[in-house]
Amino acid sequence: MLEDRPVLTVTAVNQYIKSIINRDDNLKYLYVKGEISNFKLASNGHFYFSLKDDKSLIGAMMFASYANKISFNPENGQEVVILGSIDVYPPRGTYQIIVYQMEEVGAGAALLELEKLKKKLLAEGLFDESRKRQINLYPKAIGVISAPNSAAIKDILTNLKRRYPVADVYVFYSAVQGENAAKELLNAFNIAQQYPLDTLLIGRGGGASEDLSAFNDEDLVRAVAYSKMPVIACVGHEIDTTLVDYAADKRASTPTGAAELATIDRREIEQRLSFALQDMQESLINRLKRMKDDVLSYQETLDLKLRQLVSHYQEIIKHKALALETLNPENVIKRGYSLTIDEKGRTITSLKEVEKGQKIKTIVKDGIISSEVLDMEEKSNGKKL
């Protein structure tokens, strides 16, 4: 029943089909051999054509950025080998192959050989992400392999000096295209391995695929994969990819990008130092504030303890004073007691301290009584002395 099924728009159907195809890795980066037909060069530089064999035909499209790199003029009836990915054009509901590289048959055989080498090295694990090393952003020494007087070497050196002028830079010149380029690049690479480098950059500016072929040399690719120091490849532009790019630890789309990957910008260092100094100042200020608060707290606590201690001892002194005041002979006398002293003012506390006829004085609360000892009697048994 129609009412039991969702109703889709044509656009939704085409977009869904496109999403399925775009997720299928088996439809990406295919090498396809066929004959060109219906070729058209658009005003914006794009190529539109069909690729066919004796039984089938598929639409094809090549953007101008890729088309500008091929070394021949495509024509109807020409047999070619292309590298491309399948895609869907939703407005028309058609699928086509988006072409990245194109070679004439014969030249296309080299493209197929390159793919065979790529698969071989991939199977050996030379392109594995687990092999990739981190780049030291604070290098002491950086090596650069490129052509002398090239725009690439100038861009790299200019940006290294601008970004991180404290690093030593060693340049190893080599041809980057031509018959001897692969051999020269490998020789320069091996020489660079003998230097105490933190990072090694290897690359050149953009060019046609055949101009970049030296960077697909198997010996060079293996040397890059087993380099003593991390390698940054910067071969061509964003749309160019060589086997050296796959083997390197990092890949930059431009020579300038390689210099940026190899170093931290000194302005970023200055900014980080500024932030660190600011954090230190804030931390120090906060710490001093906490110390000040602690000192004030300790001071208040100490003041309180001292006041309590002083108050405690004042109470003790007060009680002692009262006790002493209670034992003061004058106060004792005031309570009705008397104090007897001899002629020298010494207190008489025993009969043994006086004798008959001795002059003594008795202090009472309202005066002094002078007297003479006439008789003495012990208290214990009333015996006269």
Rank of each mutant, 00 (worst) to 15 (best):
Gly93Phe: 07
Gly93Tyr: 09
Glu113Trp: 01
Arg131Glu: 04
Gln96Val: 01
Lys118Ser: 10
Glu104Phe: 00
Ala123Ser: 14
Tyr95Phe: 15
Lys116Gly: 06
Glu129Cys: 00
Glu113Met: 04
Gly108Phe: 11
Ile97Tyr: 00
Gln134Cys: 03
Gln96Gly: 01
Tyr100Leu: 07
Leu126Gln: 01
Gly108Thr: 11
Arg133Thr: 02
Ser130Glu: 13
Ile97Val: 15
Lys118Asp: 05
Phe127Cys: 03
Leu126Val: 00
Ala110Glu: 11
Gly125Phe: 09
Leu112Asn: 06
Met102Val: 14
Met102Pro: 15
Leu121Phe: 03
Gly106Trp: 05
Gly93Val: 08
Lys119Asp: 09
Gln134Lys: 13
Leu121Ser: 03
Lys116Thr: 12
Lys116Leu: 09
Val99Phe: 09
Glu103Arg: 13
Val99Pro: 15
Lys118Trp: 04
Leu126Asp: 02
Leu111Asn: 05
Arg133Asn: 06
Leu114His: 07
Gln134Asp: 12
Arg133Tyr: 06
Lys118Asn: 08
Ile97Gly: 02
Glu129Thr: 06
Met102His: 13
Ala110Gly: 08
Ile97Asn: 01
Val105Leu: 14
Lys118His: 09
Gln134Val: 06
Ala110Pro: 02
Leu114Asp: 04
Glu113Gln: 15
Gly106Asp: 10
Lys120Ile: 04
Lys118Val: 08
Pro91Cys: 05
Met102Glu: 14
Glu104Asp: 10
Tyr100Ser: 12
Arg131Tyr: 00
Leu117Asp: 06
Gly125Gln: 06
Leu117Val: 10
Phe127Ser: 00
Lys116Tyr: 04
Leu122Ser: 14
Leu111Ile: 06
Lys118Glu: 07
Glu129Leu: 11
Arg92Trp: 07
Glu115Arg: 15
Leu111Gln: 11
Lys118Leu: 14
Leu112Ala: 10
Thr94Cys: 02
Lys118Met: 05
Arg131Trp: 00
Glu115Thr: 00
Leu121Trp: 03
Glu113Ile: 03
Asp128Lys: 07
Pro91Met: 07
Leu117Arg: 07
Gln101Ser: 08
Lys132Val: 06
Lys132Met: 04
Ile97Thr: 02
Arg131Gly: 05
Arg133Cys: 03
Ala109Gly: 04
Glu103Thr: 05
Arg131Ile: 08
Gly106Pro: 13
Ala107Pro: 08
Leu112Ile: 14
Glu104Leu: 14
Thr94Glu: 15
Glu129Arg: 09
Ile98Leu: 13
Arg131Gln: 05
Thr94Arg: 14
Ser130Phe: 02
Ala107Trp: 10
Gln101Trp: 01
Tyr95Asp: 00
Tyr95Ala: 03
Gln134Arg: 09
Met102Gln: 12
Glu124Gly: 03
Ala123Ile: 01
Lys119Phe: 05
Ala123Thr: 12
Arg92Phe: 10
Phe127Ala: 02
Asp128Glu: 09
Leu126Pro: 01
Ala123Met: 13
Asp128Ala: 14
Glu124Asp: 11
Val105Phe: 06
Met102Ala: 15
Glu129Val: 05
Arg92Lys: 15
Lys119Trp: 07
Ile98Cys: 05
Glu129Ala: 13
Pro91Asn: 07
Lys116Ile: 01
Gly125Asn: 11
Asp128Val: 01
Pro91Ile: 08
Leu111Ala: 14
Leu121Tyr: 00
Gly108Tyr: 09
Phe127Met: 01
Leu112Val: 12
Lys132His: 08
Ser130Asn: 08
Glu103Tyr: 12
Tyr100Cys: 01
Tyr100Lys: 13
Leu112Phe: 02
